[in-house]
Lab assay of single mutants.
Amino acid sequence: MEVRTIKVFTTVDNINLHTQVVDMSMTYGQQFGPTYLDGADVTKIKPHNSHEGKTFYVLPNDDTLRVEAFEYYHTTDPSFLGRYMSALNHTKKWKYPQVNGLTSIKWADNNCYLATALLTLQQIELKFNPPALQDAYYRARAGEAANFCALILAYCNKTVGELGDVRETMSYLFQHANLDSCKRVLNVVCKTCGQQQTTLKGVEAVMYMGTLSYEQFKKGVQIPCTCGKQATKYLVQQESPFVMMSAPPAQYELKHGTFTCASEYTGNYQCGHYKHITSKETLYCIDGALLTKSSEYKGPITDVFYKENSYTTTIK
């Protein structure tokens, strides 16, 4: 009895394709271990004539594949690729409408935090270190965002349907971005203890939790000093293409032309909904596939993004 075979390709990165001759009487799992086709788990399936010449994702289970996976995804987590594939199996079914010149995501599976993050990423200057993220990001900007969303979920250790947080998501993504040249110098002034300067680099240099107003941050924000008295913390120097200011959701007025974009969060910790506000020729609110415009805006804002380049204080 002759062994019926077909020729397929296996890959971990969709760049390096490895030619395989597979036995049609055995499952993919018996031949390769966990195997995925377009995100779908085909591990328990036997090869079919229609699979001839198709590319299958496999887990990096030998040295060659491990090197290829690390170079593309910059992670050695053995569960990463499987999590990416199972997320992709959902995100490829989502709709990605162009809204006001940006790629958004039609609401499904509690994905409003991903839509808000995706919209924000198209408006701030950011370059990702893992080629996987950078490639998928370019495709997302062009309207094909399924891979990018699935990668975000995998890097953030999230599953489809789980509630997510924009600030946490951005923080994970910033860790995989090139923020080497970003720098922030802060000064804390206390009447009792004097003053202390701190220099922050990388992710810490672009994120701040405690106030939404970048102007206020430049002037000074009140913080408790270690001595128990009130101290003032203010920005001395900022070198970065953008800054992200966050605070627990509270009524906040966004003035046209003073910011790049913002995240609105309605609801409580267990259950809520994100919308995205962007400042173009007027203010726009993007909620999944829905767009509304207004000249002014007041609502429960939790993150505001500002364009920056270089700032030095005039406070002496």
Rank of each mutant, 00 (worst) to 15 (best):
Y113K: 01
T116H: 06
C227H: 02
V304N: 02
Q216Y: 05
P130R: 04
N147M: 10
C193Y: 02
K106M: 13
Y274F: 12
S181H: 15
T198R: 13
C190P: 02
A231P: 00
V236D: 02
A136E: 14
P131W: 06
C271K: 09
Y234V: 09
W94L: 05
T91Q: 04
Y252F: 12
T43W: 07
K307W: 04
A154E: 03
T278W: 04
A177E: 02
P248D: 08
V189L: 09
P224Q: 13
K7P: 11
D23E: 12
P224I: 14
N268Y: 12
D38L: 09
K229G: 15
H48S: 14
E162G: 06
I45L: 14
T75Q: 09
S79W: 08
Q197S: 12
S104I: 05
I124T: 02
G101R: 05
T43R: 11
K54W: 13
T302F: 00
Y72F: 09
L212R: 05
V243H: 02
C156D: 00
F305A: 00
Y274Q: 04
E144M: 08
A117H: 02
H90C: 12
T91H: 04
A140L: 13
V221G: 01
A247W: 00
L291E: 15
V99N: 07
S181K: 12
P224R: 15
Y84K: 04
G202K: 04
G29W: 09
T75L: 07
G202Y: 01
E215M: 06
T55E: 07
T313A: 15
S104G: 07
I105E: 02
T19W: 13
L153M: 09
C227F: 00
F259L: 01
V22S: 08
I315A: 15
T192Q: 12
H74A: 06
Y306R: 00
G161S: 06
L200I: 10
T11N: 06
T5G: 10
L153E: 03
T226G: 14
K183H: 09
L121D: 03
R4L: 12
A250N: 11
Y306K: 04
E125M: 05
T211L: 08
R66M: 13
K92N: 09
K92E: 06
A87W: 02
H18W: 06
T292E: 14
A142C: 15
F128T: 03
S240N: 01
D180S: 11
K95F: 10
L17R: 11
I45V: 13
I15M: 10
N14K: 10
